[in-house]
Design a protein around this nucleic acid. Structure first.
Lengths: 353, 353
DNA sequence: CGGTACATTTTGATCGTTCCAATCGCCTAC
DNA sequence: GTAGGCGATTGGAACGATCAAAATGTACCG
């Protein structure tokens, strides 16, 4: 007895099964699947019925192979566990899904070695493009070597080490760090603040440098002094920020306000201030960066710069899709604006009250 | 002039190019790629040199097609933007990457309609398995219909609607919600608390029901009363929790402690308490669930249940990989333990002081 | 009735890889 | 001298889809 009866359990249903099932050729079934106007109404109905009956699922990999296309995009993030990037990823996936692409995820945990490995692995799945938020210290040359020049790359959030800025062969989407920090600083100055510190972040990171530059720009424009001991480094998280709070008050004159590297740092600083008996929003002004969910809910609510990570995710996806449509266009650097959100943590200096 | 010279810009390098480049057959190159012991040392060296020279990248899709295998796993989450799931996703990706799989990401935004669409789309890419944290109200029958029985499914965090619990055809990884809430309640009781509320979450969600059941269990075991107005519903986020705070005090006797649905709710509740002049951790005891990053840093630090989302992610991946190794084994329901973390937000009742 | 236009369908090759069954040298044994 | 064995290599058919070109059938026109 040959095995010709029911479509048995394990094997997957293919075009050929459907074709056999309703006595047409594979090509016709393929045309039906793609909604071609070439097929006769009755045939289409018969085929569609058979597709349903057998529970067919399309094999996009096979189609992509033959058509030399791809329907996936790789998303490689330095820290998916960070809510900012989680939101970003959500936005990316939203937009890609809408355009019929699937997201290949890779998380590098801020290690450039893992980044290499992850990129190499994802490339074997032939993504149409890559969205990369590089790990700290990730080198342009290495990334270029593994990614090659066939797969469009969109860089998000950070520059790569050693890349000549204007002529890098990839698109970039960056936040307007400098302008954001300038806005925050100008806002403090407008409130009457004069002794303003820049608090948190690593000097090495490009985003920290840009934000510091914005701070310097505003201070200089207002003719205010910048004391060296008003720049405090710390890891970009709450715990370290709280611990470093004291450093603001080692030397006189002590600042009465601080522009912080980001919200996590700002919240940590506020915690540290409380512990010293200094009340943020009354005795000391604080601003953050990112507008994470807690910023609106802290006590006092935090003045900060909204970067809309989900919208940035959608934007990144759009930029990459645009590049796929026109691979020849010259690479672009897009700078997403950030928006100053004024809340109670920024206040005039005590003297002015 | 025919175009036979340098490997020109756009076309991708294939096995055939390498084979031609060093005068062997495609089959030999394939053997080299897979590290077969059949090939001669010298040939291997020649081929490997050529691979490097031409910058070959393996096409896993083609290989998967031929071998009828798959090297991807779909990860479908109801809310990637939630830090808990972001951590979970990180753990999943870590473990899958280590096992040579790639993660196909899908975020459903808590909509079961989108969940259907996302599942269908991901299935076309033929994942070896699926890890699904269902959207609220996602129906077992519909999921089963689109996923079919060929692709192993691992359910995380929530049950599907309308699934007969013990004999569902898929594996499950759940948190020990009931025991966790019981531990928290018992802890409050041990501190001398007698009027304990259950605060937050939606009655519909299975995790909320389980946590509430644990609360009830502990209260009854201690012979303590459970007033109906001590169960307050609210959306599982800070804002709504803060807004609902007042509901605890509408009727006498008012509670002096609350077991909260999760950390977000607990933090919101503490905010609400402050606004009413009630100091959490002194006048009123609060516990959470999840142990998110902020829990340790809030004022006061929050007593909660640690669920280790990243470890759960790794575990989910392991469970699915195990299932791929042995597709015939009977489906299992795994319950991950949670751990009580005692911090300053839980205190004895004011009367006892 | 032959020719041509049109609508619909099919054949066979192809994408980049792997598998199977040969094949090719080359050495040894009888 | 030939049969057999062994290491190394290879040709060609798959996998499941698509595409280009050719082949049907049907109708209409002079």
């Amino acid at each position: 007895m040959a095995t010709e009866s029911t479509p048995h359990a394990n094997r997957k249903i293919t075009l050929a099964d459907i074709a056999a099932g309703c006595d047409v050729s594979r090509a016709t079934v393929s045309l039906v699947l793609r909604g071609s106007p070439l097929v006769n109404k009755l045939t289409r109905a018969r085929v569609e019925e058979e597709l349903r009956r057998q529970g067919y699922v399309y094999n996009r990999a096979a189609a992509n192979l033959r058509r030399r296309t791809s329907s996936s995009i790789a998303l490689v993030l330095n820290d998916l566990a960070n809510p900012f990037f989680a939101e970003f990823a959500t936005g990316v996936d939203e937009a890609l899904g809408g355009a019929g692409y699937v997201t290949l995820l890779g998380s590098t945990g801020e290690s450039s070695a893992r980044e290499q490995a992850v990129l190499a692995s994802l490339l074997e799945h032939d993504p149409a493009g890559i969205i990369l938020s590089p790990a700290e210290g990730s080198a342009a040359a290495r990334v270029l070597a593994t990614v090659g020049m066939h797969t469009p790359l969109l860089l998000f959030n950070r520059e790569l080490d050693g890349a000549a800025s204007p002529d890098a062969p990839w698109d970039r989407l960056m936040l307007d760090n400098q302008r954001g920090a300038r806005l925050a600083t100008e806002h403090l100055i407008a409130l009457g603040q004069k002794r303003i510190a820049f608090f948190g972040g690593h000097q090495g990171s490009s985003s920290c440098q840009q934000r510091h530059a914005g701070y310097v720009e505003a201070m200089q424009a207002a003719g205010l002094p910048i004391e060296p001991h008003w720049r405090i480094e710390c890891a970009p998280n709450r715990v370290d920020a709280a611990a470093q709070c004291g450093a603001l008050f080692f030397d006189a004159p002590a600042p009465t306000a601080a522009v912080c590297y980001n919200d996590a740092v700002a919240l940590g600083l506020m915690l540290g201030l409380y512990q010293r008996g200094v009340q943020p929003g009354r005795d000391f002004a604080v601003t953050g960066f990112d507008d994470i969910a807690e910023a609106a809910l802290s006590a006092p609510p935090l003045t900060t710069l909204a970067s809309k990570p989900r919208a940035r995710g959608r934007q990144a996806a759009e930029l990459l899709l645009q590049r796929l449509r026109d691979p020849q266009a010259t690479p672009e650097r897009t700078v997403a604006p950030v928006q100053l959100v004024i809340r109670a943590s920024s206040c005039p200096p005590p003297a002015a009250a």
